[in-house]
Computed example of a mutant assay.
Amino acid sequence: MRYAQGGGLTDAGRAARERVRLQAVERFEDGQKNREIAAALRVSERSVERWRRQWRERGEAGVLSKGSPGRPRLSEAQITRLERELERGPLAHGWADQRWTLARIKTLIGRLFHVSYTVVGTWLLLKRHGWSWQQPARRAIERDEAGQSMTPPRARSWGRKGSTPVVRVRGRGSGRVSMAGLTCYKPGKRSRMFYSVREYRGRKGEPKGIGWRDLCDLLVRAHIQLGGPIVLVWDNLRMHLVEPMRQFIADHADWLTVFQLPSYSPDLNPQEGIWSLVKRDIGNLAAADLGQITRAVKRRLKQIQYRPDLVDGCLVGTGLITDG
């Protein structure tokens, strides 16, 4: 017989629980075996074993329930301090972006007050004190003469109801980070993901993003590491259809077969799920320079490479299947 932490019982239910334990004590004194007691009282043998051990050590008092440990509570002064620290933002507490998540707030409570909350308990605490899950607004704290800004995706964050969280972004510089990737699936094998990242800093003659040569290099690298032929299914991006890319595909027809997805069908492309995971991770990032964004992107892509379950989930999200 198991009860939820905190009891989850009425007064009558708690009284019934104590009666069961006292009945177990009577049966201990009569010399009954654990299996007989468990069957008679409709509890697990494990519970009976624990009660018997407590009875031997401390008698009847040792068997009685100690009651719920109760949920940890913060005083009003501690709640006020917590809200003040939350308003300072995650950057002030060592996180790389400006996104308050339940896990981060739970960690902050532990750091400040040495009190352990569960994620659900943290959610209830915030709800009780007027905080909600919101889409933040942006505010530039630096701009160059051209007024261009580096603004990574916005991600939801916890904030006080009626007061929209503000994400401060630096507007210095006009660079961006481009990504290309391959998600690779084979029945019975571990899913793989390959990627290429390129920075564009606005310099004269610098490529503005991923080009067809980058795509060719990515395909060759995947072919070498996978050690077999590749059936490539991709969308109708202009770079996929340029003549040099078509020529590369024709020249490597011995190991590369290409199929085009229907037009306007990102929901069928599992790589879109990868990009969504990356953008969510760098949401609300107040990057000091383009290099910080690049490092954050590469770090997240590397983490995904070691999580085949995430790669599999992106395929599941498309509704497609691999037929072995």
Rank of each mutant, 00 (worst) to 15 (best):
315 L>S: 02
143 R>G: 12
166 V>H: 04
9 L>R: 08
66 K>C: 04
306 Y>T: 15
59 G>H: 08
223 H>G: 00
220 V>G: 04
236 N>K: 10
116 S>V: 14
166 V>T: 11
46 R>N: 13
126 L>M: 12
63 V>Q: 00
163 S>E: 14
204 K>Y: 12
186 K>W: 09
318 T>H: 03
60 E>I: 10
145 E>N: 05
102 L>M: 10
104 R>W: 05
210 I>F: 01
311 V>C: 00
8 G>P: 01
280 R>V: 06
247 Q>R: 07
128 R>F: 04
107 T>F: 05
19 R>V: 15
256 L>Y: 01
310 L>M: 13
223 H>N: 01
308 P>Y: 10
44 S>A: 08
125 L>Y: 03
80 T>V: 10
213 R>G: 12
226 L>A: 09
309 D>S: 14
244 P>D: 00
160 R>A: 13
36 E>L: 09
228 G>T: 09
215 L>R: 03
270 P>H: 02
182 L>M: 09
169 V>N: 01
181 G>V: 14
309 D>L: 11
68 S>I: 11
181 G>T: 14
206 E>N: 08
232 L>H: 06
304 I>R: 02
251 D>L: 15
125 L>M: 09
135 Q>N: 02
188 G>S: 10
35 R>S: 13
94 G>T: 04
113 F>Q: 09
34 N>K: 03
286 A>T: 13
38 A>C: 03
305 Q>A: 12
175 G>W: 13
278 V>D: 04
324 G>K: 13
141 I>G: 08
109 I>Q: 07
224 I>E: 12
56 R>Q: 13
89 G>K: 07
123 W>D: 08
205 G>V: 07
85 E>T: 14
111 R>G: 09
262 P>K: 06
103 A>K: 08
218 L>S: 02
47 S>P: 06
249 I>W: 03
173 G>Q: 08
133 W>Y: 14
160 R>N: 02
182 L>S: 07
286 A>M: 13
247 Q>L: 10
196 S>G: 15
197 V>R: 07
77 A>R: 06
43 V>Q: 01
212 W>T: 15
149 S>P: 02
40 A>K: 03
86 L>D: 04
176 R>M: 08
193 M>N: 02
253 A>C: 08
265 S>C: 14
241 L>P: 00
17 R>I: 05
222 A>C: 12
143 R>P: 14
207 P>H: 04
58 R>H: 13
55 W>T: 03
200 Y>V: 11
187 P>G: 04
226 L>S: 12
51 W>T: 04
264 Y>E: 05
71 R>V: 12
172 R>A: 15
160 R>Y: 01
210 I>V: 11
225 Q>C: 05
300 R>N: 06
295 R>T: 11
34 N>T: 07
19 R>G: 12
128 R>D: 12
113 F>V: 07
251 D>G: 14
220 V>L: 05
70 G>H: 03
310 L>C: 10
303 Q>H: 07
174 S>T: 13
69 P>H: 00
94 G>L: 01
226 L>E: 15
279 K>P: 05
217 D>K: 11
274 I>C: 02
144 D>A: 08
54 Q>D: 04
